[in-house]
Amino acid sequence: MFKFEDITYHFDGGDRTIQVSGAVEEGGALALRGPSGAGKSTVLRILARLLQPVQGTVIFQGRDWYSISPMTWRRRVHYLPQRPVMFSGSVLDNLKRPFELVILKNQEFDQGRAERLLRETGLSLEMMHQDAHTLSGGEMARVALVRAMLVEPEVLLLDEPTAFLDEGAERLVLSLLIEWLQERSGRALIIVSHSEDELNIFPSLQVVDIATINREGVV
């Protein structure tokens, strides 16, 4: 369903390079594994077309990535950064914000679904009218995940989605992700996580190791 080949990116003016390939099937999860600073987040950003690799290609649903407009691509292959981003306004404003975009004009904001997803991540509905910038890091991370799910992407690129969460919230979020994968066909996720335990919860998990290579070819 989603396959990337020879994605190559240079860091520090070419001193360090990453080169990576991988694939994920419908309903599956792919983990990017590697030490801190290895470039896992960079790979996610490349797959979201926020960064341009020096070479490599991605095939999504049989189509080359550059045959799809960047707007359509990012709407279908959604990247969720590790540090959650909140827009100004309430939690509700934040959940509705993407639906103001032209690309989502034919898609209605489903408040019922939003409330259900918030509850499933362990958030109280009372915070719906709270200023989003007053939320804790963990709450913001969950609101950002719910906001991403509401626009119905086909591939979720998740960068440490549980980094800000306590154990209880982490379990809820992981269950929700598994449920999201299985809820409808045509979905997949690519995840960066430091926690092996967290990753093992996903059925049929594929793993790709990421490492940077310096000029001498040493990992």
Binding site: L50, R74, P81, P98
Partner: peptide
């Protein structure tokens, strides 16, 4: 910059 990029991630045009 984070908000701009977040909007891009939802499929916003540069102008949006």
């Amino acid at each position: 910059v984070d908000e701009v990029e977040e909007l891009l991630c939802f499929g916003a045009t540069p102008w949006e």
